[in-house]
């Protein structure tokens, strides 16, 4: 749990077109405001190993059904069952939400449940912080190839 006080929500500069500023203090994550935190998450996880669900289940995080999940399919209730059936192919949390017409927040909680019970695993390659530059360069090359 972050214990740092949340940064305030004041705009950094004047926004001359705004009649009054709209700010209300809203907590922003300590991690997201930490300049040391990289664009590509440095702590990556394989196989859903011990990390708090909240910090690992991003909207783009890929999850995959396990053998246990496959075996339990008939015993699961509707949304859980649909998710386990869908994730036989790896899917991002946001894809789960869109395909099953679930609110993103709801999908995230259900996916987290299923990871906790071992019916899904988080599928994430190990990537070190030192690889960020290469990854960004690859994305740049990949985009440049688009016509």
């Amino acid at each position: 749990m972050p214990t740092d006080p949340p940064p305030s929500w004041e705009p950094l500069g004047p926004r001359p077109y705004v009649a009054g500023h709209r700010g209300v203090d809203v907590p922003t994550p300590a991690a997201a405001s930490d300049p040391q935190v990289s664009g590509v998450r440095p702590y990556l996880i394989t196989g859903g190993r011990a990390r708090p669900i909240d910090s690992t289940l991003h909207v783009e995080t890929q999850v995959l059904t396990t053998w246990d999940g496959r075996a339990a399919l008939d015993t699961l209730t509707y949304e859980h069952r649909d998710i386990v059936a869908l994730c036989v192919r790896p899917s991002a949390v946001a894809e789960v939400a869109a395909h099953l017409r679930l609110h993103l927040g709801v999908a995230r909680v259900l996916v987290a449940d299923l990871v906790a019970t071992g019916y899904l695993v988080i599928r994430q390659p190990e990537v070190g912080a030192h690889q960020q530059v290469q990854i960004i360069e690859r994305v740049i090359r990949g985009l440049k190839a688009i016509r």
């Binding site: 196989g47 783009e60 071992g118």
Partner: peptide, 21 residues
């Protein structure tokens, strides 16, 4: 025992790294 994935992407041991904008 760890839960094993049901399938792995054909031909690859590594899952793709998702990045976002």
């Amino acid at each position: 025992m760890d839960s094993k994935p049901f399938v792995d992407a054909p031909g690859t041991g590594r899952p793709p790294l998702p990045v976002k904008i």
